[in-house]
Design a protein around this nucleic acid. Structure first.
Lengths: 215, 215, 215, 215
DNA sequence: CATGAATGAGATTTCATTCAT
DNA sequence: CATGAATGAAATCTCATTCAT
């Protein structure tokens, strides 16, 4: 019976419901995402939920989709710009944007991610993962010299997945043992090292460094 | 009023309950970890759960504790041996053991970890994290020359957290884009590179690399 | 989260629940006042109880409140009339009304009172007590000559409390040793004697009596 | 299966169980009188309860019986002495003894009486009532001149029942409006007036007590 | 005899879903 | 369309009772 929203108002209601779901999930945990509570926060009657969703499961799914979509949308527009940066700067830019995204609205998305796996089957951040893969591909297209690195797929896999989770984990910590900037620097360094070669800089200023220099 | 188990039989029952909880969580997801189902799988009556646990929440907590304890116990005994290996070999050894641990009992722990965050407050793998930190510390004590690396705490943080999650994520994938061995190699390489210096091993001594140094 | 009833229908449901509770308590005793049974007798679903009450305890409280309110309401309207009667007649009128109240609906209230103390904390008939106190006060205002009696507060206390309970006790007896009329007469006489009869008889006409005079 | 206690030790255990029941009831209310709690307080295992009682109901019954027996036993030995006192003094003596009985052991019996009606069918204080009736009878035998009072049975009924309850009610109040002594004096006065004081005071000094009779 | 672990019937409570208004 | 009262299936939890040790 739930109809596709055809009017403007209806679309707004659907968005309000999904928003409410995310707000409740973030603030009160998965056990609180009851239909009553979601309807309450959305400012509508319980019965109205079923005008737009088949059942609670569908609302959960919409919440997960929304999070994935929003996360991907936060990064995707940056790609054209990122591919023109150094590996290190591009990494830092992505990390900073990720932090901003996760912490907006009082950490709503950050909190939600914890619980997403319990709401629906499947990995909620697949869309984000795809965007980051796309970024890597585009970057390599523009910088073919890097593509010689061995283990490229594995390295990329580790950077994307390890990166996503390490950031989430760090932002979730109440008393992080290191600052976010330190974390970001370390991650960006690692990406730069491993993709570009030689850890020489480590112990010696080294000479040139070719195109690797930032900006 | 759950009493401390006083007889031998009672201890076995407690273990059976926690086991059953993990089995159900792994196989049927968090929504299935009802008291009824756990009791059923444990082969006891529902009432018996409450002889040993205050409420369902307490059972969940015990499950989380158990997973953390088991995970730590899988790695800790290896430490003395690991510190005598090369960084790369030690990393590989840990990764292999982690895989074995996560995949035992038909991936019970692997599946459980997905849902742990939704069951209780707090990070369920803190114990594992601690063990890995300890390993890092011990390793650096035996290899003081590495301690000169900059960003040591941040690097360690990234390796531990990123490593844990990347492995979990990989093992959870139905159709992984890379093999576990490739992943492990990549991770071990990264640790070795970043901790030990010079990406020389890659394909060549590598000339440039220059200003890639952080900060 | 039980909401205040907003529609007419809802108010009727609340009343039906409390009614059902009193009916079950009267007929089947306190052990039978389960949520299931109350819902059944009220002709609603179990879940509906929780639309209006937080828990079973709240229903019990509402039952007690209802009984107190009804009892008070049975007597209060009589006050204007009572204060114009003689002490004896007023007492008899109150006693007759009390009996009628307690015996209506097949003795529902009478039976309930037995069990009220076990349902909630506090004295369920406080409201009735208050009304009777008010009656006494109003009466004394109109009949100031009585106010000279010594021990007025204590006497009033005894009449009200002793009177309430004696009536309840009598009506509860299966084979009363005296009739209700005899009881009522005796009580009314006592009130009349003690309040009105001046205590003259005590030391005066009374031949014997000796040390019986107060203080 | 529960055997009659034949050994000394067994009798002590039975007493301990009943004691424990009364203690729990007094301190924690009727909902707490579970078999576990009673066994715990009695210092025995749950299973042992069933060595001496058929079921929980039987324990409750024993508790009620015990209270009735103890209450009666508190008053009965005083009868020979009481019948030689004045009405007023005898009344006061009984009231003081009642208070002492109800308040002993931190008000154990007082608290229990509140809940007794919900534990078993029947009036738990019948034994006390009987003792007081017996006292009245004995008193009238020794003081035949009083027996002329009209309404004697009704008066006695009121005094006994109203007296018992008024005292219980008063002792149960947290902030009594009058002191126990005031209450006792008032009650004793009333008894003395009504039994002894000739009813003359009613409408006139009157001659006899005769015409005061109702109707 | 005494115990306490185990039980399961039954109690309370929650909540997704329906449907009359 | 929107509502929220009503529902009942299913969850959590309690506790009198049994019985192997």
């Amino acid at each position: 019976m739930p109809r596709k929203p055809q009017q403007e108002r209806a679309k707004a209601t659907v968005a309000a419901i999904v928003d409410a779901g995310l707000i409740v999930l973030a603030r009160e945990g998965p056990a609180a995402t009851t239909t009553r509570r979601i309807a309450e926060v959305a400012g509508i009657g319980v019965g109205s939920l079923y005008e737009y969703f088949d059942n609670r499961e569908a609302i959960h799914q919409a919440m997960v989709d929304r999070l994935g979509t929003d996360a991907a949308a936060a990064i995707r527009p940056m790609i054209p710009e990122l591919v023109r940066m150094s590996v290190r700067d591009a990494s830092l830019a992505v990390l900073r944007r990720a932090r901003q995204f996760l912490e907006q609205d009082e950490g709503r998305y950050l909190h939600c991610i914890r619980y997403m796996t319990s709401l629906v089957r499947g990995f909620p951040l697949r869309a984000l993962q795809s965007v980051l893969s796309e970024l890597a591909t585009q970057y390599l297209i523009r910088h073919p010299e890097m593509a010689r690195a061995r283990n490229l797929p594995a390295m990329t896999y580790v950077f994307i997945n390890g990166g996503i989770y390490t950031v989430i984990r760090h932002l979730s910590e109440e008393v992080p043992s290191i600052s976010f900037d330190e974390l970001a620097q370390a991650l960006a360094d690692m990406v730069a090292f491993c993709m570009q070669g030689s850890l020489a800089p480590l112990d010696a200023p080294a000479a040139a460094g070719g195109d690797v220099r930032p900006r």
